[in-house]
């Protein structure tokens, strides 16, 4: 039995401690934002936050998570009251198929929790571990710049202004 704190709620989970967090989120907790892409820590579509840091949920065994704070995209806001990152992504229409987007949002959220005024290079480096097969990158980067501005900061040497 392992106690997991997800989006501020505590859950007691009874599965093999080696089980990756992604399976527990999707299969046991009905949180479907984080996606299974590769299962190998290579694509980032499963990214969630653990203690404010972005991690690949597919290679994070729940054995590692007792007493730590997990946040998924569901925890960033609701359809009625979206969080800043979610709003920014919607306003920039930053999605094609959308499969990578929860991972992208988790990355963006982690970056902005660390700093609301990253440099362009810092922002790109932070987003890099999540792959997007649709080529939505330019919109995604716009969304992150917008989210940074909405949080009272802004990308310091932005490659494009926020409109």
């Amino acid at each position: 039995m392992i106690e997991l704190e997800v989006n501020g709620t505590s859950h007691r989970i009874n599965v093999d401690p080696a089980t990756p967090l992604l399976y527990v989120l999707r299969d046991d907790l009905d949180l479907h934002a984080a996606k299974f892409g590769c299962g190998l820590g290579q694509c980032g579509s499963c990214t969630v936050l653990v203690d404010d840091k972005p991690v690949f949920a597919c290679i994070t065994p729940i054995a590692a998570l007792a007493g730590r704070m997990i946040t998924t995209v569901e925890g960033l806001g609701t359809r009625e009251a979206p969080g800043i990152v979610q709003q920014a992504f919607a306003e920039e229409q930053a999605a094609q198929c959308g499969y990578c987007i929860p991972g992208m949002m988790a990355r963006a959220e982690a970056l902005l929790r660390r700093t609301t005024s990253p440099s362009e290079a810092e922002m790109r480096a932070a987003m890099r571990p999540v792959l997007c097969r649709c080529g939505t990158h330019m919109r995604i980067l716009r969304a992150v710049r917008r989210a940074a501005a909405m949080r009272g900061g802004g990308v310091t040497d932005a490659a494009e202004p926020v409109r």
């Binding site: 401690p17 080696a18 299962g39 190998l40 597919c58 290679i59 994070t60 590692a64």
Partner: peptide
């Protein structure tokens, strides 16, 4: 404890016979 962490964090790539 190390074995459980290996199984959940490393095995999909590094266990003999893994996809990777």
């Amino acid at each position: 404890a190390g074995a459980a962490l290996f199984a959940g964090a490393c095995a999909t790539c590094h266990e003999p016979g893994a996809t990777m």
